[in-house]
């Protein structure tokens, strides 16, 4: 399957996945050094979902994001400098320091913002779908959410509404098997989250969320369906977060996940798997791999530098931006 995909696109995907990984590793490190406050919810381990899904999109497509959203932001074209500045609480950040990690929005890239409320973004993505349908464009609206969000009322209200009106919305579940500490098996009554699509008469698709090409392929089909006016699709992308729920979750989630389980998933690292495949199929040389690594590291260093050098907002700016 990979052989059919343009080499340049493959390398782009690889670079983006690596960018997400390095960005978050750096953010965790800075958090541990108290340069970043609040919470960080790392998506390390889930990069293939973000990149596979967003590669199937156009810049003018809309995206609604989750609290674990750095990966989706970057994959949708966000500038790592402005993201890092936001994490630092700087005036130059995407939200002028008012949003932080959980609320990064980038309207120029169709990124309608991340959400600190599980399931909170689903209706917003539906609204973007209505907007597309009413403006008669062929954009699509993509909603990322976790497995836990599918137990919220907003999930069912949103999928129902989108299905009812055949809205161009793609529901992408980043199913990392745990809602904070609660395993899917103890919270979801359906056998698979994709089964929930049947209740709304839309396609529910199981996807290996650690295989970027699989995500890209299934997403491309869902996007085509949405652009053709055939309505929404639910993608159930099964993946795993290598870190805990947030920075500060003891032992990367060891209180609710076994060491064996975590080790097993580490072997299935989406980035390592993809690199191996690219080299095997001669889409990437080891030299290129090293060059990408160097470029990514430099861009993250650059982002940190930018964030560090950026000014903090003045206290009086707290009262700005409440209304337009």
């Amino acid at each position: 399957m990979i052989s059919k995909i343009d080499s340049k696109m493959c390398l782009n995907m690889y670079e983006q996945m690596l960018t997400i990984r390095r960005f978050e590793e750096k953010a965790i490190e800075l958090f541990e050094h108290a340069l970043i406050r609040g919470n960080i919810h790392p998506c390390i381990g889930q990069e293939a979902v973000a990149v596979g899904a967003c590669t199937a999109l156009r810049p003018d497509d809309f995206m609604v994001n989750t609290h674990r959203g750095h990966g989706n932001c970057l994959a949708k074209g966000a500038d790592a400098k402005l993201m890092m500045a936001e994490l630092f609480g700087k005036k130059t950040g995407y939200c002028k320091g008012k949003g932080g990690s959980m609320h990064i929005a980038d309207f120029q890239k169709g990124n309608l913002g991340a959400n600190g409320i599980v399931g909170g973004g689903l209706p917003i993505a539906v609204g973007a779908g209505i907007s597309i349908q009413n403006r008669r464009t062929d954009q699509v609206s993509v909603c990322f959410f976790g497995d836990g969000a599918t137990n919220q009322g907003t999930f069912h209200e949103s999928v129902n509404m989108a299905a009812l009106w055949k809205l161009p919305v793609i529901f992408v579940c980043e199913n990392n098997l745990y809602g904070l500490s609660t395993p899917v098996g103890e919270s979801v009554s359906a056998c698979n989250i994709s089964d929930r699509a049947a209740a709304y008469c839309i396609p529910g698709v199981n996807v290996d969320g650690n295989d970027v090409i699989a995500v890209y392929t299934k997403m491309t089909e869902a996007v085509a369906r949405a652009r053709a006016g055939e309505g929404p699709t639910l993608l159930d992308c099964i993946t795993y977060r290598f870190f805990g729920h947030f920075t500060g979750d003891p032992g990367k989630g060891i209180t609710y996940r076994s060491k064996e389980e975590m080790d097993e998933w580490l072997k299935r690292c989406p980035i390592k798997q993809f690199a191996k495949r690219l080299i095997k199929e001669k889409k990437m040389t080891e030299k290129t791999e090293k060059a990408i690594e160097a470029a990514v590291n430099a861009s993250i260093e650059n982002a940190v530098q930018f964030a560090k050098e950026s000014p903090l907002p003045a206290p009086e700016e707290a009262l700005q931006d409440l209304f337009h």
Binding site: V64, V126, E157, M161
Partner: peptide, 27 residues
């Protein structure tokens, strides 16, 4: 399309109005 009579889904009504408004459709 402009007069959307909805299911009884108050969260989706308010949230989708927000999504539409944020993407250029006054609602």
């Amino acid at each position: 399309q402009r007069v959307r009579s909805t299911p009884i889904s108050e969260s989706a009504i308010i949230g989708s109005a927000l999504g539409a408004a944020m993407t250029g459709i006054r609602t």
